[in-house]
C-alpha cells in the first residue's frame, strides 16, 4: 500500500463520515483546524480506517494524529509492520 493509496482511501472515508469532499483531504491538512472534524468523527474515521486498511488505531494513539499526514504515516508504518 503506497502513501497515495492510503491518502485516496482516507479521503473516501472522510467524505463518507464527515461530508468533507475527498479532494480536500490533503496531507498538510489538520483534521480539527482545517477540515472541522470533531473527536467523535475521528473515532468513526479510525474505525473505518481499520476496516479498510486492517490497521487498528487505538484511542491513545488517535489523539496524537492531528494531520492527514499523521494518519497516512501511521497506517503505512503499521501496515508494513504487520505484513
Amino acid at each position: 500500500m503506497t502513501d497515495q493509496e492510503i491518502l485516496a482511501g482516507l479521503g473516501e472515508i472522510v467524505e463518507e463520515i464527515a461530508g468533507v469532499p475527498a479532494d480536500e483531504v490533503t496531507l498538510s491538512k489538520s483534521f480539527v483546524e482545517d477540515l472541522d472534524i470533531d473527536s467523535l468523527s475521528m473515532v468513526e474515521i479510525a474505525v473505518a480506517a481499520q476496516d479498510k486498511f486492517g490497521v487498528e488505531i487505538p484511542d491513545d494513539q488517535l489523539k496524537d494524529l492531528t494531520t492527514v499526514q499523521d494518519v497516512v504515516s501511521f497506517v503505512a508504518k503499521n501496515a508494513e509492520g504487520s505484513a
Binding site: V43, L62, K63
Partner: peptide
C-alpha cells in the same frame, strides 16, 4: 466517562 472509548465500543 472516557467518551471516545465508549463511543467506539458502542458504535462497533
Amino acid at each position: 466517562q472516557e467518551g471516545q472509548t465508549v463511543f467506539r465500543w458502542a458504535t462497533t
